[in-house]
């Protein structure tokens, strides 16, 4: 008996905003290309009911000095370049990054506090080393972030970089720096739909166009709260598609940082034998954290290990291919 199944299609009234990162020579910068993210008019990869115009982008994290607290498994992958952000950025580009995320440390290599002069120099060097669009994150301490990111914003004027992370306690300074220098802001809130929306509103109220705001709902690692961010992202994306204008920002997640912070990836000894091979487990941890968030609407995934980058890129390529 033949059966014809009528496929239910959701009709949405809203879509995710498109945000452009990076500026080429014509656009007042020096990037070899700009990248556009967002624009989805349906849930992730539901091509049959709405346009998914841009694939999620991969940013590879590069630090301004050799990280002192990284797992050897991921540091080994960059061992030739980890003490030189210029070489590291080039290697990241070669590893398939769509963007470079430059993370500024709290301290310099000699242990003294990081300085605006260092931050500016590293940003300039990395801009010179690669044509990819750039994201710059501060150390994550409100005062130091402000101290470093304002001069960074000025140094990179016109390049349309992403400045982060703007949080409840320091967004004003970072947003002002982005407005004055034509950059994009990453708005981070702790795993909550309403907080995410509220910070976007506050940033918008300062006068930054929503086309220059990314939303970072905070990432939990596999096994350490991934489900919270997962569901918050699903709710934010549904709200965006249903037309809630202040939830329509593309979403940034940081599975690299989070997954490499946990014991499963950081520690190779004195762990249960059933956890299996350390290197294999660690890369799975980052990959599966990222892969799950690809399915919930991540627009930029910040990753660390080149093998995880390769696997997540392959997944995205497949999900964007509509040849079936």
């Amino acid at each position: 008996m033949p059966v014809t199944v009528e496929v239910p299609k959701e009709k949405y009234g809203g879509k995710v905003r498109e945000v452009v990162i990076g500026a080429t020579k014509d656009q007042g910068g020096t990037r070899s290309k700009a990248i556009t993210i967002g624009g989805e008019a349906a849930l992730p990869f539901m091509h049959f009911e709405g346009a998914i115009p841009h694939p999620p982008a991969i940013a590879i994290e590069v630090q301004d000095r050799k990280p002192s607290d990284w797992s050897p498994v991921v540091l080994d992958a960059w061992k030739e370049v980890a003490d030189d952000p210029v070489k590291w950025a080039k290697a990241a580009e070669a590893a398939g990054a769509d963007l470079i995320l430059l993370k500024l440390n709290t301290t310099l290599a000699d242990g003294s506090p990081n300085t605006p002069a260092n931050a500016k120099k590293v940003v300039r060097d990395v801009l010179n080393a690669t044509g990819l669009p750039l994201m710059v994150f501060g150390p994550g301490q409100a005062e130091l972030d402000n101290e470093l990111l304002v001069p960074v914003a000025e140094e990179a004027k016109g390049e349309k970089i992403v400045l982060g992370v703007a949080e409840d306690k320091n967004y004003r300074t970072i947003v002002a720096a982005a407005m004055a220098n034509d950059h994009v802001v990453n708005s981070r809130t702790p795993m909550d739909v309403n907080l995410a929306k509220q910070l976007v509103i506050l940033i918008h109220d300062m006068g930054l166009p929503l086309e220059r705001v990314l939303m970072d709902p905070t990432t939990g690692a596999l096994g350490y709260g991934i489900e919270y961010g997962y569901s918050v992202m699903e709710r934010l994306r549904l709200a965006a598609l249903q037309g809630d204008g202040m939830t329509q920002q593309p979403m940034v997640v940081t599975p690299g940082e989070e997954a490499w912070r946990v014991k499963e990836s950081k520690v190779g000894t004195d762990v249960p034998a059933m956890w299996g091979d350390w290197k294999e487990r660690a890369i799975h941890w980052e990959t599966l954290t990222a892969a799950s968030l690809v399915e919930t609407g991540a627009d930029i995934l910040v990753l660390r290990h080149p093998e995880a980058v390769k696997r997540v890129k392959e997944m995205i390529a497949q999900l964007m291919s509509q040849t079936r």
Binding site: L222, W278, R281, S292
Partner: peptide, 20 residues
Amino acid sequence: FTPASAYALLVLRQNIYTDP
């Protein structure tokens, strides 16, 4: 099947199926 891959996948399943 390897222990490392099964561990990661089982934890993911546990997380996704946790009652919010």
